[in-house]
């Protein structure tokens, strides 16, 4: 980690932290995981009957893919925990929105 050690050295607009390559092995591994999950989704789609459980599997694997894309491809794992929290914690509101509107969707059934 790199800091501008003397007060006054720090230029908030032009500051760019030093970065180093971590190699490509991890990236290809993540690619294979994402590809494998997509193929698995494809297989599950034809293997199982359309039920709530199948949907739950799809959503779960969607979240797993999201974890790998954000964590490895977007380098969230290498960021400071403070930045990760600033970006990830507000997602809680999306969960609230999903729960709220699915409940409302259910209620809409009654009005149709």
């Amino acid at each position: 980690m790199e800091f501008y050690n003397k007060p006054g050295d720090y230029d908030a607009i032009n500051y760019v932290p030093h970065t180093e390559s971590h190699g490509t092995k991890e990236l290809w591994r993540v690619f294979l995981i994402l590809l494998g999950i997509t193929i698995f989704d494809f297989a599950i789609y034809f293997a199982l009957d359309p039920t709530g459980w199948r949907n739950a599997i799809f959503i779960f694997f969607g979240l797993v893919k999201a974890y790998f894309i954000v964590g490895a491809f977007m380098h969230m794992k290498n960021e400071r925990i403070t930045l990760a929290l600033v970006i990830l914690v507000p997602i809680v509101f999306i969960i609230g929105l999903i729960l709220g509107l699915l409940y409302e969707g259910h209620a809409l059934t009654m009005t149709k």
Binding site: E2, F3, G8, A12, R80
Partner: peptide, 21 residues
Amino acid sequence: EAIFEKQPVWAGGRSPFNVSY
């Protein structure tokens, strides 16, 4: 320099998230 390094991350003078703007 030594004094500055002991300052907490949020005391100013550096990027607290250690990312560019």
